[in-house]
Simulated assay, not measured.
Amino acid sequence: MAAETQLEFRPATSADLPFLTALRHATMSEHLARVNAARDDAAQLARILFQFEHAQIVSIAGKQIGLLKAYREPGQWYIAQIQIAPEFQGRGLGRSILDKVLTQASNDNLPTVLRVFDGNPAKKLYEAKGFKEIGQDGVECLMSCPPA
C-alpha cells in the first residue's frame, strides 16, 4: 500500500458521532432497507454506540474514511462493523482493514467471526479472505475464518 493510502486507526470519541452517523447512513441504508430494518437516526445511533469502546476511526493522511469495530471475545475475535465511506470503496481498503483484524486473531490463534447482511457485496471479500458461512437467519449470514 502506498504511503499516501497508509491507514491510520484511533479510538472513536463522542466528537465522532456526527461522522459515524453520516457514514452509517451512507454505507448501510441500502442494506437495512432491503431487510426492512430501522434506518432512522435513533436506530443508527444505537448501532454505533453498541460496543463503542471498541470503535476505531480509520483515516488516511488525517482524513476520516471509515470505521472498524472489532474485539476479542472468549475463544474468538468478533468484527462488529467495518464501514468505508463510499468515495473510498473499491480501493482495497476494506481488505487492508480486514487483514489487520485477521493478523491479530492469527497471532492469538483464534478464529474471526462476523455477520453480514444477505446481498451485501462485502460477503465476496470475506469469502476471498477465507470466511465460511456457519449460520443463516434469513437476514444475516454468520461467517467464521480460522486463524492462519
Rank of each mutant, 00 (worst) to 15 (best):
D118M: 03
V116M: 06
I65V: 15
Q136L: 07
I79A: 03
E133T: 12
T103S: 01
A70Y: 02
L98N: 01
Q76V: 08
G135L: 06
W77N: 04
L7A: 08
T5I: 15
N109D: 13
E133W: 01
G66A: 07
A42H: 13
R34F: 05
A3F: 14
E73I: 13
L102C: 14
V101Y: 00
V35E: 04
R39S: 12
D137S: 07
K129Y: 14
G135C: 10
D99G: 08
A26Y: 02
A105I: 03
A85G: 06
R91K: 13
R47K: 15
G94K: 02
K63D: 09
H31D: 02
Q136W: 06
E140P: 00
A38G: 15
N36R: 09
I60F: 06
E127C: 06
L142V: 11
G138R: 03
F117C: 08
I134F: 11
E30Q: 09
Q81P: 00
L23K: 05
P74T: 14
F117R: 08
P18C: 09
L17S: 14
V116W: 01
K63H: 11
L23R: 05
F117P: 03
L93N: 05
N107P: 00
Q56W: 00
Y126T: 06
T112A: 11
N36S: 13
L93V: 10
C145D: 04
Q136E: 08
R95V: 07
V35D: 03
I79N: 05
I79R: 01
A46C: 10
K63F: 07
P146R: 09
Y71M: 13
A148N: 12
E4H: 11
A61N: 15
Y78G: 07
S14V: 10
E30H: 10
R10A: 14
T5D: 15
M143K: 07
G94W: 00
E127S: 06
L125C: 11
G92A: 11
I97F: 00
G130S: 12
R115T: 12
V35R: 03
F52Q: 07
S106K: 00
L142T: 13
T21Y: 03
L68I: 10
I84Y: 01
L93W: 06
Q64N: 13
A26N: 03
G135I: 06
S59F: 08
G135K: 10
A128V: 04
G119E: 04
V35P: 06
A122R: 04
V116L: 06
V116K: 04
D108I: 12
F19T: 07
V139Q: 07
K100L: 05
D41S: 08
K100S: 04
N107L: 02
I82Q: 01
G92F: 11
D108T: 09
C141H: 12
L142E: 10
E73N: 11
H25V: 05
E4I: 12
E127K: 06
Q6D: 15
Q81L: 00
S59N: 11
S144D: 01
I82H: 00
E127I: 07
L17T: 12
M143L: 10
R47Q: 15
L142N: 03
Y71F: 15
A38T: 10
C145S: 12
F52G: 09
I60N: 07
